[in-house]
Simulated assay, not measured.
Amino acid sequence: MPQRPTEIPLPSQPPASAGAITDVAGIEVGQFTHTGRPTGCSVVIARDGAVAGVDVRGAAPGTRETELLHPSNLVQKVHAVALCGGSAWGLDAASGVMRWLEEQGIGLVVGRGLVPIVPAAVLFDLHVGDTHIRPDAAAGYQACVDASRAAPAEGNVGAGAGALVGKLYGLGRAMKGGIGTASLRVDGVTVGALVACNAVGDVIDPDTAQVVAGARTPDGTGLLDTRRAVLAGLPPSSPLAGTNTTIGVVATDAVLTKAQAHRLAQVAHDGLARSINPVHTMLDGDTMFALGTGASGRTSDMTTLSVLVAEVTARAVVRAILAARAITVDGMHWPAAHDIGALRGPRPTGAGGPR
């Protein structure tokens, strides 16, 4: 067994729940957060396998085992999906996930052995602290050890630990991102999402169209509104391509074909587009996975599933921001949504709602 990495206490949860991806039967989540700097990984596990799809919309992705998810390719089910900080280095965490799954007897049977199928995606958080500290195989393994059906922690944990948002006008005016989850249940079928938001753009509450977090004004005390700033002709700074990215997983207990899972991964990006602006830029590697456990034994019409998938994805993004807490690393301070005076007041309606 790999050496257990150091862990830190999880932050307290935000007051209201929007459900969780673990409300989907057959889904577990485990997370690991490093102590040396804000980074980590989040693992979505389907012990019995799940039909899977993926869609990459950002122009600077970092991924592993995504090509096999295309509907025309052989492998029908995956056993976990890893969402990781650490940029390309973080892909190593998936190896630890594979090792843990193999020890549990979970994987694709190949003769006398098993090959656990673990697609992964990463976000860039290397500008937050020591770049030599990043998720590795031991971190991925430990996330699996700690996995459960309980609602996962949100905010500054796992893949969201080092996430920032609103970076189009420079890191110094950005805010804290994070990881969030949500779920909905309609007609006996549950759909959930887990999203780590590290976007170059602002995060928007879809129900109010208000900016929740993003690029701040030059004095740092309010929200700039990146979309309006760009439309007004304010030139962005020159952020390094690929230093952003929103990654996530949507899951359902409905029975899906591989083609349907692929379509739902595409639809999940509609949820990103409702809650992040700008999104899918040349500076982001936005990637969404879709899983169908089939545990409900029910099929559902694709229009209904598509509505649910887009909705829970958008809610999970907003949850990630509402759960985030400010951090200060190497003299750089990034406030969270609740730290900005303009945001004090009622909780945005887009973060909750019926389950």
Rank of each mutant, 00 (worst) to 15 (best):
V157E: 07
T217A: 10
L69W: 03
V29K: 07
A295D: 13
G113R: 06
G353Q: 04
A143E: 01
G162E: 02
F289W: 00
G352V: 07
L224H: 10
T313D: 03
H132R: 15
G222W: 02
D136R: 09
K167T: 09
A316I: 09
G107C: 06
T131C: 12
D270T: 10
V145D: 07
S296R: 12
T217C: 07
G85P: 10
I45L: 15
A153K: 00
G113M: 01
I133T: 15
Q31I: 10
S95A: 14
G345R: 08
V122Y: 05
V267A: 02
Q260P: 05
A351T: 14
D270C: 12
V109F: 02
P218Q: 07
V309L: 05
G170L: 09
G178D: 01
A163R: 03
L91E: 02
D253M: 08
A174R: 05
V255Y: 12
V279C: 08
A273Q: 06
A82Q: 07
T293L: 04
T226Q: 08
T299K: 12
P235L: 13
S183D: 04
A52R: 14
P335K: 03
G96P: 03
M282Y: 08
P15N: 04
H79M: 09
I106S: 11
P11M: 05
A46H: 04
A193G: 09
D202G: 09
G107P: 07
I340K: 01
G58Q: 04
A196H: 05
A137R: 10
V145N: 09
G140V: 00
V115Q: 10
R64L: 07
T246K: 02
T299I: 07
L231N: 05
P119C: 06
G62R: 06
G170N: 09
A93S: 13
L184M: 15
P346L: 02
M175H: 08
V255N: 07
T208Q: 05
I133P: 02
A121M: 13
T63I: 12
R319I: 00
P348E: 03
P38M: 11
G331N: 06
L194G: 04
L184D: 01
E67H: 11
A310L: 13
V109W: 12
R227G: 13
A336Y: 11
V230Y: 13
M302Y: 06
F124C: 05
D207I: 07
N198C: 07
A290K: 10
G352S: 07
T221H: 12
Q210K: 15
G188I: 00
A174Q: 11
V118S: 02
G214P: 05
A232T: 11
D202E: 11
D130S: 02
T243L: 02
L224R: 02
P278E: 00
A324S: 14
L283Y: 15
L123Y: 08
T299Q: 13
A82T: 13
G62H: 01
H127G: 15
L168C: 04
H127E: 15
R173G: 03
A336D: 02
T22R: 08
V255S: 11
R298A: 15
L283P: 01
S87T: 03
G26Q: 10
E28M: 13
L69S: 04
D339L: 05
A147G: 08
N198V: 02
M288S: 04
L114K: 04
D55S: 10
A139Q: 05
R344Q: 15
P119Q: 06
M282V: 11
D146Q: 14
D301P: 00
A60C: 08
S148N: 00
G188W: 14
R173K: 13
G285M: 10
P135I: 00
